[in-house]
Every structure is written in structure tokens, then in C-alpha cells.
Amino acid sequence: MSGPLIELDSVSRTYTTPAGTIKAVDDVSLSLGESETICIVGESGCGKTTTGRMLAGLLRPSSGRLLFEGADVWEKKGKDLARFRRAVQLVHQDPYASLNPTRTIAQTLAPPLAKHKKAHGRAARAAMISLLERVGLTPPADFLLKYPHQLSGGQRQRVSIARALTVDPRVIVADEAVSMVDVSIRISLLDLLHNLATEFHVTTVLITHDLAVARYFGRKGRVAVMYLGRVVELADTESLVSDPAHPYSTALIAAIPEADPTITRTKKRVPLKGAEVPSLLNLPPGCVFHPRCPLSEPGLCDVVVPILGNLPGGRSVACHVALRERQPAAELLGVR
């Protein structure tokens, strides 16, 4: 495959609030190839959802470009734009709110099939049955006449995925798609999304606050860690979790409670300088992480904004110290 399929080219998004202007996303670039999986992780307010919405073309960047197959999406019109709309689909977080409660599953799936001229009448029924099979709702005929309230959270989320698939998308953006379903069935939903990437060459973007979920889902892909509107680290998933390069990623991984008593009770902590996340209304100068960072150097980190640079091993990190030392923060902090 030549060139990326979809690309954010240094996009920023600002919001005007009564209290002032906030920059929810600041100069983010991401480039995704066909059938790639990528996870965007970060805490609330880091800009991961805003980034996902810009990637899906639902939110116009305040600056920067969204490119699909090399062309600027926000310059597209008419048929060209409709083609992009079909190609990129979103799966929402809350399967209780994202399905129309007054429509059966068939009534939810048929309109997009008809609208985008995929299938009508009897062919539509066959198409719906095959979609439901693809998302693991069996026997599919049983589900067609059901209403959302008759389904469990996990089943609803499968219907949401089936709905996204009605238009044969090439990119799926799933925003916290498993955080509201029961722990016991999260893995099967992640597997379903993962199969779309491997078997049907769909590029999948999973936005999550849960690094364990990101690790499992993105095990063959990459992870972007965001903090206060910026991507602070971008790396393949295994090197990120086993040897994080940015001090923030390092602190995050060290702080995560894990479902293993020995591991979780003996984890080495990273002592952060402050507990509070700065307000987006009043961001610190220089590196936004410097007030909490144990590696912060006066005169450098509090003055100069670090840009994403490359470390050996194909990872990028936005940290002056890690880049200068050519070493991941995890080593500099003695966590590894």
C-alpha cells in the first residue's frame, strides 16, 4: 500500500468558553495505513475524543488538515465527500444511548443499506443476516425483530458495530467502545474489532482510558499517549507498555492497578511532583507536563515546548530529556 490511508496533519482544535479559550488538541499528527490498528490513550481531558472526532471528519480542526487518501477532507464536496463519510464510521461509547429505542435491529440496519444503495428488500434481509453473523449475534434471524432494550450491553455494542459495517467502511473509530460493557465480555468485543482489521482490512482506531485494553487490542499495532491536548508518545504497543519513553507514560503505567496481586502490590512508583492536572485554561509554559515531571530541568522544560522526536526502536517521544539522553524515561527514572 502506498502512502497512508488517513492522516491528521498537525491539527489543533480550540474551544471558546465563557472563562476563556482552551486548546483541546494542540498540533497533533497521526498517519494510519490500511488495516492498521492504533489506540489513543490518555486521561479525561487529554483530547483523545476530540482527536477521534476530527479523524472521523465530524469536527473541523481549527488549524491543520485531515487527509484521506492524500486529499484534504474539508475541501471535498458532493460525491467525493459522501464517499469519505461512508469510508469512516464511528462506534460510540454508550450502547444504551446510541441505538434508537423505538426501532428493531432490522429497522436500524436497513436504512443505511438502502440509503447507500447497498441492498434493498430481500437482498437487504440477507445482507443484515450476514452482518449480524459477522458481529457474532447468532442465530441472526432471532435478532432482526428485537428492540435494543431486549439486548444486553454487549449485544447492543455488536449491533452498533454491525451498523457501522453496513456501508463497508475502511476506517472505524471506536470511542471507549468497551468501557460500558461488562468486564467478562470486553475481550470478545475487542477480538471482533480486531478481526475487522485483520480479515477485512479495516483501519481501526480505539480510543480508551484503559491501558490494559489498549495493550490487548493494539498488540500488533501502535499506541499514542496523549496528555493535555498533545501526543507525548507514539510507539508500537509492546515497547510502550514494557519500556515507556515519556515520563508521563512511565508514571501512568507505574500507577495502573493490575489484576494480579503480586505485580500490583510490588510495582515501582514514579514520584510525581504534583497530583493535580493543570487546567486547559491555564496551561503551563514549555512542556505541559513539566510541573509534575520528576525529570524536568529548569530553563529547558519550563521554557521550550518539546516536539515529537524519534528514539531508537521506531518510537517517538515529546520529551527534551529522553531525546537528549537517547534513552526512555523508564530507564532514566530507574523504573526498569
Partner: peptide, 13 residues
Amino acid sequence: VPRVSGALGSVAS
């Protein structure tokens, strides 16, 4: 439940 540290193992729903 997948973990962040250690081997991923055979995770399944």
C-alpha cells in the same frame, strides 16, 4: 482481564 505488565497470556471472554 488483560494486564499491562507481564505476559499477555491467553486472555478470553
